[in-house]
Design a binder for these strands. Structure first.
Length: 476
RNA sequence: CGGGUGGUAGCGCAGUUUGGUAGCGCACAGCGUUCGGGACGCUGGGGUCGCAGGUUCAAAUCCUGUCCACCCGACCA
């Protein structure tokens, strides 16, 4: 795929950010809205989100969760109850102060996340250990008044899911947080083909109000890290101020233990940056809204024969979109669908017709294979699996190639100046050393991996014995 | 939120220095020829020059303000 066919998209090497924006706009995933920092998710982009939703929603339900919906507006008082939470979110809240033409007695925040609203309801609903656990998920939009926005990666309003659970025991909440992180990890790797590093956030990077935060971190094509999903063990940090208590078996009144976890439309940004190439998107077959496109090559002499057979095939084959637009040439269509990341393409022309064949083409490698028309279902299934596995493998290799252990700050700095990527380093556990890395290199602690690829003996900053191994990276 | 760049037709741009009836390529529409990696010809439609003020006989062009986007930094899914 070295040749340059698409002129619509800026090559990655020339300007990675522009390439990303070109992909978003030209593939018609999203467009800028007339409101600062907001985007419109267009049908093709929303179809990707619906695929993501469908898979995750099923997995949430398989693990006992139910969907519900809570209000968009959050009374000011709610947010103020958990001091760390309000401090963390205060700078990015949008407030409603008027309604129905009158000043509101109490301003309402547009939810940046729903912990407080949901907790207020849990306090009403939970009375006994028999009411537990409560396992609820919500698909919704949230608003955070971000200073710098980019389509999908960081927008003022975005779509996500937020799971909120309440448990009788501390370990249960912790286990839940880890269980859901594992679902995210598996989903990212197997369905999106995005390898991630699962681990725990450092205290300074954890969610405002959490006892422990966990994350899955992915590496984008430009070597910058992206937090792809988070899961929090909230401890009793919310159940105490919101007084969510239950009478336990032993007759004692206790506060529940909670978790919350979420992924957002940011995942679409990750898909673009992990798999995309200079021709545009490369979508994993499992979430591609259009799994395959059939492009007929229909010169005048064979027009009806080709189109007729193309219609038959498209109708018989599952997930095949027939592009029989008369106004575009086959070459134009190839480029168009490649830009949109469609995993497989079937070309059908007069020559194929004579031989009872079709040409099957892979989006990720460009490989073209002539296939007997009768054998298409099997060949497509095979090639589809090959694409799914191929892009995952490629992404995994990229992550490995771009991960380096470092022993000291200078090494980290020099390496990072050369090339962006993930850096494995020791950490003594002191906030000051973590801050020093950021100060000196711009890289932040992504997480403390559950399964580090390498171990470090000494803190990368102070040289004292390392209590943890940390992944550092410049992040989105 | 700081520093930088930019906003002229759907997209990409020229025109702004030196004020004087808004242009090019692609896209779009009609007709014809075409179809194995972004086809071609002819004809045609489309712009209150981001927005609001100001200067001037006259503003895309000069002045002030403002909005938006992009890039680089500080904060976040």
């Amino acid at each position: 795929m070295a040749e340059e066919f698409v002129k619509e998209i800026t090559p990655r090497a020339e300007d990675y950010s522009q390439w990303y924006v070109d992909c978003v706009l030209k593939a018609e995933l999203a467009d800028y809205a007339p409101v600062r920092g907001c985007m419109v998710i267009r049908p093709y982009g929303f179809a990707v989100w619906e695929k993501i939703q469908a898979i995750l929603d099923r997995r949430f339900k398989e693990t006992g969760h139910e969907n519900a919906y809570f209000p968009l507006f959050i009374p000011r008082g709610f947010l103020e109850r958990e001091s760390e939470h309000v401090e963390g979110f205060a700078p990015e809240l949008a407030w409603v102060t008027r309604g129905g033409g009158e000043e509101l007695a109490e301003p309402l925040a547009v939810r940046p996340t729903s912990e407080t609203m949901i907790c207020s309801m849990y306090a009403k609903w939970i009375h006994s250990y028999r009411d537990l656990p409560v396992l609820i998920n919500q698909w919704c939009n949230v608003v955070r008044w971000e200073k710098a926005t980019r389509p999908f990666l960081r927008t003022t309003e975005f779509l996500w899911q937020e799971g909120h659970t309440a448990h009788a025991r501390e370990e249960e909440a912790r286990e839940e947080a880890l269980r859901m992180l594992e679902i995210y990890r598996d989903f990212l790797e197997e369905d999106l083909g995005i390898p991630v590093i699962a681990g725990e956030k450092t205290p300074s990077e954890k969610f405002a109000g959490a006892a422990h935060s966990y994350s899955v971190e992915a590496l984008m094509g430009d070597g910058r890290a992206l937090q792809a999903g988070t899961s929090h063990d909230l401890g009793q940090n919310f159940s105490r101020p919101f007084d969510i208590s239950f009478l336990d078996r032993d007759g004692q009144l206790k506060h529940v233990w909670q978790s919350s976890w979420g992924v957002s439309t940011r995942l679409i940004g990750a898909l673009i940056m992990v798999h995309g190439d200079d021709r545009g998107l490369v979508l994993p077959p499992r979430i591609a809204p259009v799994p395959a496109v059939l492009v007929p090559i229909a010169p005048e002499r064979a027009r009806e024969a080709v189109l007729g057979r193309a219609r038959q095939l498209a109708a018989a084959l599952e997930g095949v979109h027939l592009d029989d637009r008369d106004e575009y040439t086959p070459g134009w269509k190839y480029n168009d669908w490649e830009m949109r990341g469609v995993p497989l393409r079937i070309e059908l022309g007069p020559r194929d017709l004579e031989q009872g064949k079709a040409v099957l083409v892979r989006r990720d490698t460009g490989e073209k294979v002539p296939v007997d028309q009768e054998a298409l279902p099997r060949a497509m299934a095979q090639m589809s699996s090959a694409v799914q596995a191929g892009i995952k493998e490629r992404a995994r290799n990229f992550l490995q190639e771009r991960t380096w252990p470092v022993d000291n700050l200078d090494q980290l700095r020099f390496r990072l100046e050369e090339r962006r990527g993930m850096f494995i380093a020791g950490w003594c556990g002191d906030d000051a050393c973590e801050a020093a890395v950021k100060e000196a290199t711009g890289a932040t602690a992504r997480n403390i991996p559950f399964a580090p690829a390498a171990r470090s003996a000494a803190c990368v900053v102070c040289g004292k014995a390392a209590a943890h191994t940390v992944y550092y990276a410049r992040a989105y």
